[in-house]
């Protein structure tokens, strides 16, 4: 994964509710976590829209919604669309 512009890539946990973007990369040393995220289709290039941050992270991915905890949300890097 090439990170071209650092400024516009943020971890999901730092997005504001309602912010949209595309998944830039999934960043984790934990293979199990990576597997889970992949199984849900959380992969670079997919459009993502953060809906809620507390008590769980809820986001729209394509046409479906998912909820994850903070640990998993921290693994997801998003390229913000302006």
């Amino acid at each position: 994964m090439q990170i071209k512009d650092i400024a516009e890539i943020l971890p999901l946990v730092e997005l504001k509710c309602g912010q949209k973007g595309k998944i830039a990369s999934v960043h984790t040393k934990n293979h199990e976590a990576l597997k889970k995220l992949m199984a849900m289709g959380i992969l670079p290039g997919i459009k993502i829209n953060l809906i809620q941050k507390f008590p769980s992270y809820v986001f729209q991915l394509g046409q479906s919604q998912y909820a994850v905890d903070k640990e998993l949300a921290e693994c997801i890097l998003v390229r913000i669309s302006t």
Binding site: A33, S64, V68
Partner: peptide
């Protein structure tokens, strides 16, 4: 455990 779930 970690939590991840589809919200239908």
């Amino acid at each position: 455990p970690s939590f991840y779930m589809e919200i239908p």
